[in-house]
């Protein structure tokens, strides 16, 4: 299948480290490019060769199912040679630093490194030390740009626009890179963003990003077009932020009665993996009329293909 591309537009950055580095043009360019790959991914022959001869290394320091497999599939469908490294078994365990690992891999001349790391800023550090393109697949609590892009693509596909929409992002904002990337992207594209979280999970001065903050979920969801739920990141919580999961569910879990405050055609999103019965009612998660969670995963591959192609060119 032939892929039409707009060669005139170039991306303004060498690496994809975060949404905050991108311009509105960059974002629209990536989203437009992603559209073409949606069709490719639904067709019978899913493989093209725009990245033939290129080497892509997936460097995942944190466990990941969907992001890692999505990047791997994206690379393979574009014809790149993809190597996924499980860093749990690597030299890092033997005391090697991130920079040394980077230098070692750099010596093998990869064209793209996709990195996920538990420390904020790890991808920035990596990008300063290697010659190839670095794509951030999530760094600490800072950014997860491809997730925000795929969320935007999902919203755009369903609502045909982003500007003027009212979007609620709910849950564990403090520990969430997905929330941060989405806040940057959605506000940049002209959406009105409501942040809903208990005070203990609300980052300091988040309102300075140009969002409205709510501790009452019903108020935060009022008249929203999109309800984006986040996973409660228990693994990042070092001390008591919440009393219990059941109390959290009672006040911040997405249930039909709370969803009633949003618009009747509101869509439910979740970056996954979900804690059913904690942040989201399991019936809502599976409600095909409201939930677009599976679509997010599907479009994730297309967005990552677009990113790989654009940044690798």
């Amino acid at each position: 299948m032939a892929i039409k591309t707009n060669k005139a537009i170039k991306i303004s950055k060498k690496h994809l480290l975060g949404i905050q580095d991108l311009s509105v043009n960059d974002i629209n360019y990536i989203l437009d490019e992603s559209e073409t790959f949606i069709k490719l991914n639904q067709s019978k022959n899913k493989k093209i060769d725009v990245l033939r001869g290129k080497t892509q290394i997936n460097l995942f320091f944190e466990p990941s199912t969907r992001t890692q497999s999505s990047f791997e599939l994206a690379g393979k469908r574009l014809g790149a040679d993809v190597m996924s490294m499980n860093m749990g078994n690597s030299a890092i365990k033997k005391g090697e630093t991130l920079i040394d690992t980077a230098m070692t891999l750099n010596a093998m001349h990869p064209d793209i490194i996709v990195i996920r790391h538990q420390d904020s800023g790890a991808c920035n550090l990596l990008s300063q030390k290697v010659n190839c393109v670095v794509l951030n697949a999530g760094d600490g609590r800072r950014e997860h740009p491809t997730q925000a892009l795929l969320d935007a693509l999902t919203i755009r596909n369903r609502k045909k626009k982003i500007q003027g929409l009212k979007i609620a992002i709910c849950g564990d904002i403090l520990h969430s890179r997905v929330a941060r990337s989405n806040i940057y992207l959605l506000t940049m594209l002209g959406a009105e963003v409501n942040i809903v979280a208990p005070s203990n999970l609300m980052p300091k001065e988040i309102e300075k990003f140009g969002v409205n903050t709510f501790t009452d979920m019903k108020k935060g969801l009022k008249d929203c077009d999109i309800v984006m739920m986040l996973r409660l990141q228990n693994e990042r919580m070092t001390s008591s932020y919440l009393s219990s999961n059941r109390e959290y569910y009672e006040y911040y879990g997405l249930t039909p009665d709370k969803l009633d405050h949003a618009k009747s055609d509101a869509l439910i999103m979740h970056p996954g993996p979900m804690n059913r019965g904690i942040e989201i009612d399991t019936r809502l998660a599976d409600d095909i009329n409201k939930s677009v969670i599976k679509e997010q995963v599907e479009l994730g591959v297309a967005v990552r293909m677009a990113c790989l192609k654009i940044f690798c060119e």
């Binding site: 905050q20 904020s120 800023g121 760094d139 600490g140 609590r141 800072r142 950014e143 890179r177 941060r180 980052p203 300091k204 001065e205 988040i206 300075k208 990003f209 070092t238 001390s239």
Partner: peptide
């Protein structure tokens, strides 16, 4: 605990 920089918008932005 685990803190690295001042609380506020910079910490929120950098995710620290």
């Amino acid at each position: 605990k685990n803190g690295m920089i001042n609380s506020g918008i910079i910490a929120t932005k950098l995710g620290l």
